[in-house]
Design a protein around this nucleic acid. Sequence first.
RNA 1: GGCCGGAUGGCGAAGUGGUAACGCUACGGUCUGCAAAACCGUCAUGCGCGGGUUCAAAUCCCGCUCCGGCCUCCA
Length: 450
Amino acid sequence: MQFRLTNTLTREKQTFTPIDPNNVGLYVCGVTPYDNSHIGHARAYVVFDVLYRLLRHIYGENHVTYVRNFTDIADEIIKRAAERNEEPTALAEHHIQSFYADMDALNVLRPNIEPRVSTHIGSMVEMTDELLAKGYAYVTPSGDVIYRTQKFPRFGQLARRKLDEQQHGSRVAEDTEKESPNDFVLWKANAKSATKMEQAFNPKDYGAQHFSAPGRPGWHIECSAMSRQHLGPTFDIHGGGEDLQFPHHCCEIAQSEALLPAGQPMANYWLHNGFITVGGTKMSKSLGNFTTIKDALQKYSPEAIRLWLLQTHYRKPVDYSDEALKAAQQRANRWQRISEEIMPDHLLNVPLPKEFIEALADDLNTSEAMAILESWPDKIGKVRMMQFLGLLVRAQSMEESPEEIQLLLDRKKARIEKNFPESDRLRDLLKEEHGIIVEDGPNGQTWRRA
RNA sequence: GGCCGGAUGGCGAAGUGGUAACGCUACGGUCUGCAAAACCGUCAUGCGCGGGUUCAAAUCCCGCUCCGGCCUCCA
């Protein structure tokens, strides 16, 4: 079987060959936990969840290491914590738990390792120090450590940027302490920062030789340091949203590859997912046009949201609209009914159809995979595929209340007595007031939650 | 200004040379007290526009139009 992925480095679909099939490494940039996650985040993590499931299927459950970080030290967190008169660590922790709740609801598997910036300061200080020692960084008068992009000619290559053609400073004031406008911060000295942290980290405590100003790590260094620590200097796949291509991933490459022998890459394959848009415009916090995962889950089932996200190829934009979600909900409901006919333990030894895996192995063609599922002849096979895609959430069917049970009994009785006006009234009542859909089949009355 | 990407039926969406998957909606039918569900069937002579290559193009080439993204933090 061919396993191919579109590599942003080459912009081509390439055959995936792991460095070590017994230990495939996947690193995906995680969230900055300062607010509830929106469905744009959901897309990224659902997409990479499917990739993770596929890698585990191909190479074995214990032969994939999936690392996804939490940027729990960041300006946004410090700023918001100050606004709310809260401890930054408490704010971050709160939102990490919120993120977990969302991911669990969407049936996103937990990565193997979820490193946090706050527990990896040492790795970052160490890497910053190495970059200074090799002349890839410099210390400014105010104590910042800045990456010297001119020393790394390939800077921006992943995003195909020609640096002299960028519009520097067009949207943000330039930092006069930088040697070049492209240079970026590795270590942010507390003294200078607009958002001060009460307890800054002291580089000396972590053995820094070449810089000393207390402060905190810059944004980009975390992924370089944490991926190196957990996956090694060169690993298989690095993923994230397409907005991270530049500058974030370009900076990561500059940092990591400056410390590697010439020609040795940080990661062999770079994958980027497309955005969620709203009326064609990118969903983002700053535009305020976002819908949180929690809000979406109020209106649609987790299966419907996952199905909606996966019906489009991961690199294309997906527009969020109630119409689209409603359509996905309809399809998800139908699938749900099929899955309810199959006992979970009947799926244990059901193989996944070859063509289904082949579709997914063709650059994660989830649309094609879903079409195969749709036209598959037997239900067990269908449900097995749903399970693979993470679409068997099986929301715990809520227990009926005594009142509801009585209404259902009354309705059943009325219908047996052919008191149709009354049975129809109770059917409507159950639907409108209790969200219970009553249906009459060959075996009598059945019901389900809407 | 530079770079990147997108445009397929009413809606969503797959499809990188061989004559348009799949889903939602709609419509017709079976079933039903009526519904719902389920099942069967119907729905793009056409893939943003104009040229070109080819026996053959949604798919390749050239030129446009429109929309979006990145160059600030962003999944």
